[in-house]
Write a protein that binds this DNA or RNA. Sequence first.
DNA 1: GGTGAACGTGCACGATGGGCAATCTTGCCT
DNA 2: AGGCAAGATTGCCCATCGTGCACGTTCACC
Lengths: 199, 199
Amino acid sequence: MIEGLRETKRAATAQALAEAAFHLAKERGLDGFVIDEVAEMAGYSRRTFANHYPCKEAAVASVAYAGIEAAADALEEVSEGRPLLDAVEVVLRLQLTTTGLSRMREVLTLARAYPSLEPHVYYVQHQMRLEVEERMVAVAAGHYPASYLTLLVGAVYGMVSSALEGLVDVRLPGDLPIRGAVEFDEFLTEVFKHLRTGF
Amino acid sequence: MIEGLRETKRAATAQALAEAAFHLAKERGLDGFVIDEVAEMAGYSRRTFANHYPCKEAAVASVAYAGIEAAADALEEVSEGRPLLDAVEVVLRLQLTTTGLSRMREVLTLARAYPSLEPHVYYVQHQMRLEVEERMVAVAAGHYPASYLTLLVGAVYGMVSSALEGLVDVRLPGDLPIRGAVEFDEFLTEVFKHLRTGF
DNA sequence: GGTGAACGTGCACGATGGGCAATCTTGCCT
DNA sequence: AGGCAAGATTGCCCATCGTGCACGTTCACC
């Protein structure tokens, strides 16, 4: 799982293209720009954009992925000598404090305005779930059967997904991610209350 | 929520187009046909296809939605004088016996071969979840707070979604949905074991 | 039975996706 | 150090796609 310079650069271009697409989408709306403009803003060609993303929507949605890899990485060390569910909760709250949540919130808000974004948003969420599940298995496969972990991650995913849905409705003038974060925090507490008794 | 002739016909058109797209996708692969062929097979024009679906992928994925409305309808009567979780389990097992599961399985299999399908598949799953959640609230809002129901449906959704993922791997020569159904059934039992203690 | 809204369709055109081939960069091996 | 294979980026090209617009037809409601 080493990351050579090659993959790093590839990821960087993808990132740059995604950020440009995201920026333009917030600025002018999803249908207010064309792929050429995204490519130009990021300093690449339209053809290169197509090498990384199949469409504008996928690029925009991909920014919601932010932070989950770092969170998944953290799972490894956090779970040392700690109940599994505690580790999961810590990691989720970590994701909450980084830009991860606000990014997801912005993307979900965009998706509400432009339905063609929605499939790609939920796909990104699905990929985040897979990322977490993979790490989870890597960390705890010795203590729990994989099917159990899959189920656990599924439950967490489903409930957190519900929480995210609720976040979009919150629409304050200042657009502070704080308020959303607080609500999300309370929701997380509720989620883990159920999880601790059920798992 | 009455359904006039107008909406019936509109739904029928969408259905016909989706079935045609699904058929062609199985027959020739997702990139083995163009929208004109779908429209022709269903007896409509390309322009009409575009009025119903934004792209081939959305049409193909939409067939996985099969049965969920009937299942959600059933929730209403099944939940009479019965614990909520029991009702949910009954309804899910109902969905399992209808064509619902095999359709989902076929679509997921297609999506594995053609990644561009995946976002739309997960979007359809998300819509199914919303459908169930809506009915759930309609049925049980008097007994439980909505936030609780949302969380419950989220947990069910996440775990069932995991189970579906596993189904795709099952690949028998005869391609009988039976085997997949049996595994799914066992998985459901496991799912509700956790749910009953956690909710 | 009339009328306004919604659906299906044809047309037109800009945007898109992806195959192909050329060029440059990176990783690895000698 | 140097060269070579794999992979990234790009331009070119064109079939396909998305969608605004206008028109005829069908349906819901009065």
